[in-house]
Each structure stands twice: as C-alpha cells, then as structure tokens.
Amino acid sequence: MPRRVRLGSPFQLLLLACSFALAAYAGVRLLAGDWFGVALWIVGAALLHDLVLLPLYTAADRAVTGGLGATGRRGRTLYVRVPAMLSGLLLLVWFPLISGMTAGRYRSATGLSPDGFLTRWLLITAVLFGGSAVLLAWRVRRAAKHRPPADH
C-alpha cells in the first residue's frame, strides 16, 4: 500500500509557491537569451562549489591538520590555515586579474598596467605567511623561556 504524500506546513507551501512564481517571472527573462548557458552557469555554480571547491579546500585543510598532527603539532594548524585561507581567498576573487587572463582588454580599456596584480598578490601572500611564521617563532621562544629548567 503506497503511503500518502505528506504535504507539510501550508504556510511554507504558500510561501514557496509565491517565491517560485516570482523566480519564474524573472527566470523566463533570464533564460530568454542563451538559456542553456545560463542554466548551466546557475546549476554549475552550485555543483562546482559543493562538489569541487568545498571538497578541495576541506581536503587541503585535513592534509595540514593531519600532517601537523602526525608530528604532535596539531595545535599549530592555525599558523598555516590563516595565511593560506586569506591568500587563497584573494586569489579566488581576483583570479582574472592575478592570472592575467584579461590583461589585454584591461590595458586597452583602462589605460592601466595589468602587470602588478600577480606581484602584489605574491607579496601579500609572502607577508601573510611570513607574519604567521614570525608570530609562531615568537610564541615558541616565549613558551621556552617560561618553561621551568627541569624540562630541558
């Protein structure tokens, strides 16, 4: 005997019906041109994020935590994670400029040089990792100083 389909909250049903109607009204206009391309971008964006980007950075993070954990330094994960995340974030957002893939159009349209973006991103990355390393070294030194002599 097939079970009856449960409807759920009537308020939620009405709200979602209203939301879909508005989305469809805008959606037919959004899809009026290259409908396949646009649909591919919207569905592709969700899939690419959930099934590629997120697993990739999770795996990278686990590799760092695991690697440091194997040597008993799991507590130092943040010293790698913070600069890596910040640098990766800048690369993700400004990838077209940093990679130079729009360099030609950028130069001819704006009259500005497209050459500095990679350099500046690398310098920011160096400062982030360098700063993290200095901070870690300082904390390790301070911890060693405060340790009782018997521990040596």
């Binding site: 709200l15 400029l97 159009r105 704006t110």
Partner: peptide, 28 residues
C-alpha cells in the same frame, strides 16, 4: 568588474534578472 566577460550574455540582463531569481529564493 575585472572585465572578464565570459558569462553567457550581456552583464546587465544576467545580473538584473538573476538578482530577482535569487532574491525570490532569498526572501522565502
């Protein structure tokens, strides 16, 4: 904003109609 016009169509209609589709789901 990075002049990387790889999206499937003109920016204005894509970003405007896309915003309404997104906002409909966002409000719900």
């Amino acid at each position: 904003v990075q002049l990387d016009y790889v999206f499937p169509g003109s920016f204005y209609p894509l970003h405007f109609y896309g915003a309404w589709v997104f906002f409909a789901a966002f409000v719900a």
